[in-house]
Amino acid sequence: SKDTIRINGIDIDVKDLHEEWKRLVEEALKRGDEELAIELLERALKE
C-alpha cells in the first residue's frame, strides 16, 4: 500500500491511516467517487 493517495490531483499523506480506511478510500477512488473518498478521509483523520 502506498503512503499517499491522489484525490483531485492532490497527493494526501495517508501513511498514518489505518489500513482499513486506506482500502475504503482506494475503493471509492476506483469507482470514481472522489466525494466519498474525501468524506472517508476526513472521517479517518478524525479518529
Rank of each mutant, 00 (worst) to 15 (best):
A28P: 00
T4N: 05
R43E: 14
L29P: 00
L45G: 08
L45H: 10
E34M: 12
A28R: 00
L45C: 08
R31I: 12
K46Q: 14
L41Q: 00
R6I: 10
D3H: 06
K30Y: 12
E47S: 07
L41P: 00
L29C: 05
I12N: 02
D3G: 05
I10L: 10
I38F: 14
K2L: 15
E19T: 11
A37D: 00
T4C: 04
D16E: 11
K22E: 02
A44P: 02
T4I: 14
R43F: 13
H18M: 08
S1G: 14
E42K: 10
R23W: 09
R43P: 01
E39H: 10
K2H: 13
E27R: 04
I5Q: 01
K30C: 04
V14F: 08
I5C: 03
L40S: 01
E20A: 12
E27V: 04
E47Q: 12
V14M: 09
K22R: 15
R31P: 00
K15L: 06
L36T: 08
I10C: 04
A44N: 02
E19Q: 11
L17E: 00
E19H: 14
L36C: 10
L40G: 00
E20L: 09
A28Y: 05
D16S: 11
R31F: 10
I10A: 07
R23P: 03
I38W: 15
D33K: 05
E19F: 11
R6P: 04
I10T: 08
D13K: 05
R23H: 11
I38R: 07
G32R: 04
A28C: 04
E35G: 13
R31D: 11
L24F: 05
I5R: 00
R31N: 13
L29F: 05
W21Q: 09
L36N: 05
V25Y: 03
L45K: 13
G32I: 01
K46T: 11
A44G: 15
R23C: 04
E34N: 12
R43C: 09
I5W: 02
E39M: 14
A28T: 04
A44Y: 13
E27I: 07
I12P: 00
D3R: 01
K2E: 11
K2D: 12
I12V: 11
L29E: 00
K2I: 13
I5Y: 03
R31G: 11
L36S: 07
I7F: 05
W21G: 04
A37Y: 01
E39N: 10
W21C: 08
R23T: 12
E34V: 14
I10D: 04
D13R: 04
D3C: 05
H18D: 14
D16A: 09
K2N: 14
D16C: 12
I10W: 06
G32T: 01
S1F: 12
L24T: 02
E19R: 09
I10E: 10
E19I: 12
E19K: 10
K22A: 05
I7A: 02
K46E: 13
N8I: 01
E47F: 07
T4E: 06
L36R: 08
K22P: 01
K22D: 01
G9N: 05
H18F: 07
L29Q: 02
I38E: 07
A44M: 08
K15F: 08
E35C: 14
D3S: 04
H18S: 15
A37I: 04
R6G: 04
W21S: 06
V25I: 15
S1Q: 11
G9Q: 03
E27C: 08
V25L: 14
A28S: 03
E26A: 11
K2S: 15
E39L: 15
V14S: 03
L24H: 04
L45M: 12
V14N: 02
E42W: 04
E26M: 15
R23D: 06
I10N: 08
E20I: 13
R43G: 07
K2F: 14
G32C: 03
I12R: 06
L45P: 04
I12H: 14
K2P: 15
L29G: 00
A28N: 00
G32K: 05
K46P: 03
E35S: 13
L24Y: 05
H18W: 06
L36G: 10
S1W: 12
D3W: 00
L36K: 10
I38S: 10
V25G: 00
D16N: 14
E35V: 14
A37F: 02
A37G: 03
W21H: 06
V25R: 00
E39F: 10
L29V: 09
V14C: 01
R6F: 07
L40T: 04
I5L: 10
D33E: 09
E27H: 06
D33S: 04
E35Y: 09
L17N: 01
D3N: 08
I38L: 15
I38H: 08
A44I: 04
L36H: 09
I12K: 03
R43S: 11
I7Y: 04
H18N: 14
L29T: 03
K15A: 12
E19P: 15
E34A: 10
G9V: 02
V25M: 11
K46F: 10
E27T: 07
L24S: 04
K15N: 09
E20R: 13
T4H: 07
R43L: 15
A44T: 01
T4A: 05
A28Q: 01
S1L: 14
S1V: 12
L29A: 04
I10Y: 09
E47K: 02
L17Q: 01
R23K: 13
L24M: 10
D13N: 14
V14P: 03
W21T: 14
D13Q: 07
R31Y: 10
G9K: 02
K46R: 13
E35I: 12
I38C: 11
E47M: 07
D16T: 10
V14W: 11
R23M: 12
I10M: 12
K30V: 09
I10S: 06
V14K: 02
D3Q: 05
E26S: 11
E39S: 13
S1M: 11
I7V: 12
E42T: 08
A44V: 05
E20Y: 13
R6A: 08
E35L: 14
L40Q: 01
K30S: 15
E42L: 07
D33Y: 06
W21E: 05
L17G: 01
D11F: 05
D13Y: 10
E35T: 14
W21D: 09
V25P: 00
L17M: 08
D33M: 08
L41F: 05
S1N: 14
D13I: 08
L45A: 09
A28V: 04
N8P: 02
E27Q: 10
V25T: 01
I12L: 07
E35D: 12
H18Q: 11
D16Y: 14
E42A: 08
S1A: 11
I7D: 02
D13C: 05
I12A: 02
L45V: 08
I12M: 07
